[in-house]
Nucleic acid binder design. Structure first.
Length: 549
RNA sequence: GUCUCCGUAGCUCAGUGGAAGAGCACCUGGCUUCGAACCAGGGUGUCGUAGGUUCGACUCCUACCGGGGACUCCA
């Protein structure tokens, strides 16, 4: 690995200067290529220790480095306030290509960084009282992609969805269905959406509105999630916490430990003792539980099943975090192992107009409508485009655009273009020789180098994205890769097979595009987006074929 | 009032304490379908404001300004 090589060399140089190098020597690929291929801040970090200014120290370190004759290194220079910049021969990128091909689509970007650790990712967890809307979609796709990212880095991942299948809202849901069935308006606090009217019509006369509605809603949610390729390992029922006694058990522990008190006929959790801004009611004065109580039992149960927990919640739940963390701490769990990711709101735009998501008014943008309109790939990719920390505008027109200003299209198209070249090469009778027999050092064109440089960054991006819980970083990277593929493909000096291209160059470029294809297919696959063979539909392709005649 | 997210190019947004970015839009040139449902160039910025920490801050800390969201014996 090139970084290790350079770090070792830097450490050796520092030692020769009598310096104690930092445990992790700073080394990065500068954004600006005028600053070389790799850059280290070692001199800046140790100049105080050396008792000299960074630039002078950098000069001394460079003299040491030059005498080491480090592999791949072409030249070293001091720059800016004291950076040590390395310029490398392209030979180091040949190793990148080999490692990508060796990993293949299955293993590209994967690591064992978190091997042996289990993690539970809970997401969606929408009330089973209605269909999922477009706002839920963001959390659903984010959670699923995050789970994939975590698997990529070695975690044993459980995808889990919590079902709030008991309590007040289920009663209200059942009453609303029953009211509509009787052609009446639901009571004021009831569910007003059009779907209640539709479902009430479907509901058999003798059905229990709550149980029938629960099954109906759950199936509806499962169907739309399946259409997005999302499947859960565990559907966890809130009712089961009551029936198997886990709710009473965790409440009992809290009582035993003096974590609750009675006031006004209600039972309160002393959450302020553990960082919450108010105490919270667990058992209301009418004897019923609040939403929080079973949820505490639920999270305590999850802690018994996984080393780490991730919750994906909507922005309206952020205030809920301190009380849950407080309760987990009271029950003896490590609050820092509960990681809550908050997704900010999504605005849907169609024809420049905002589409409202309000459940109350019934003006609801269903996730199923969204998927039907733009397709599963575009839905997933678009949701994943930007950080969940910022509000998102989801442009329905852009998501289906068949042009490169649509990031989904541009990225998939890059894969299709590579496949087309590969197929054409085969049709022309050009066979790709085994990698060992191919001279990759002929890859020196700027477009080729750029492809390899992007590919090199891939695994590191995956690692950062998993740590930061930020799938959008992988999306950013795969867009960069696609862009590099398009630049390569469009460049007339970069034909893979052609009259002016030597057989040696053809072989090297066949492997180059295969490496790029691996990067695209592996990343898109993990994000749950397809890597198509062609962007044309079968019919369009047939039509084009006949045009050639 | 308290908590929280956001504030970076005209717009939409990336940015891991290290030397300000992408796409779109815009301008210039190219492109008779060949691998062009385009290509090559061009950046226009007090990184919301003011302090602080640091050799170094878009990044960390504090306060303030502006916008979104949340505060319940609701879920």
């Amino acid at each position: 690995m090139i970084q290790q090589l350079l770090r070792d060399a830097l450490a050796e140089a520092a030692e020769a200067e009598g310096l104690t190098a930092p445990s992790e020597i700073g080394l990065e690929q500068p954004a600006n290529r005028d600053h070389g291929d790799w850059s280290s801040n070692l001199a800046l970090a140790t100049s105080k220790q050396a008792g000299t200014n960074p630039r002078e120290l950098a000069g001394r370190l460079i003299a040491r480095l030059e005498s080491q004759n480090v592999a791949h290194v072409d030249s070293i220079e001091v720059a800016g306030p004291g950076f040590i910049n390395f310029r490398l021969h392209n030979t180091w990128l040949v190793e990148v290509l080999r490692s990508v091909v060796a990993a293949g689509v299955e293993n590209f970007g994967s690591s064992a960084a978190n091997a042996g650790k289990s993690i539970n990712v809970e997401f969606v967890s929408a009330n089973p009282t209605g269909p999922l809307h477009a706002g839920h979609g963001r959390g659903a796709v984010y959670g699923d992609a995050l789970a994939a990212l975590l698997e990529w880095t070695g975690y044993d991942v459980t995808r889990e969805c919590y079902l709030n299948d008991r309590g007040v809202q289920m009663q209200v849901f059942g009453q609303s269905l029953a009211a509509r069935k009787a052609d009446e308006q639901p009571e004021e606090a009831g569910y007003m959406g059009q779907y209640i009217i539709d479902w009430a019509e479907e509901m058999p006369d003798d059905a229990d509105p709550i149980e029938w509605g629960y099954a109906r809603a759950l199936q509806d949610q499962k169907d739309v999630l399946a259409s997005l390729g999302i499947e859960f390992d565990v559907w966890f029922s809130e009712r089961s916490l009551v029936s198997d006694g886990k709710l009473e058990a965790s409440l009992g522990v809290l009582k035993e430990r003096g974590m609750v008190f009675d006031d006004g006929g209600a039972t309160w959790l002393r959450s302020t003792d553990f960082g919450d801004d108010k105490d919270r009611v667990l058992v209301k004065s009418d004897g019923s539980y609040t939403y929080l109580t079973p949820d505490i039992a639920y999270h305590h149960d999850k802690f018994s099943r996984a080393d780490e927990l991730v919750n994906v919640w909507g922005a309206d739940h952020h205030g809920y975090i301190p009380r849950m963390k407080a309760a987990m701490e009271m029950l003896g769990n490590d609050r820092d192992k509960l990681d809550v990711q908050i997704t900010q709101m999504v605005k849907l735009m169609r024809d420049g107009q905002e589409v409202k998501l309000s459940k109350r008014t019934g003006e609801i943008e269903l996730l199923s409508d969204l998927v039907e309109e733009v397709g599963a790939d575009a839905t997933r990719f678009t949701y994943l485009l930007q950080s969940i920390d910022s509000q998102q505008t989801f442009d329905l027109a852009l998501a289906v655009s068949q042009a490169k200003d649509n990031p989904v299209f541009a990225t998939q198209y890059a894969h299709a273009r590579i496949r087309r070249v590969q197929v054409k090469a085969e049709e022309a009778g050009v066979e790709r020789k085994p990698l060992d027999e191919v001279d990759l050092t002929v890859l020196v064109h700027e477009r080729e180098i750029e492809l390899l440089r992007v590919l090199f960054r891939g695994p590191e991006v995956v690692e950062i994205a998993a740590r930061e819980r930020a799938p959008h970083r992988v999306v950013g990277w795969v867009r960069d890769l696609a862009s590099a593929v398009h630049s390569f493909y469009q460049n007339k000096e970069c034909y893979v097979v052609g009259d002016g291209v030597s057989p040696e160059l053809t072989q090297a470029r066949l492997w180059l595009i295969e490496a790029a294809r691996i990067g695209l297919a592996a990343t898109l696959g993990r994000l749950g987006v397809s890597a198509p063979e062609s962007m044309w539909s079968d019919e369009a392709e047939a039509a084009m074929g006949s045009d050639d005649d």
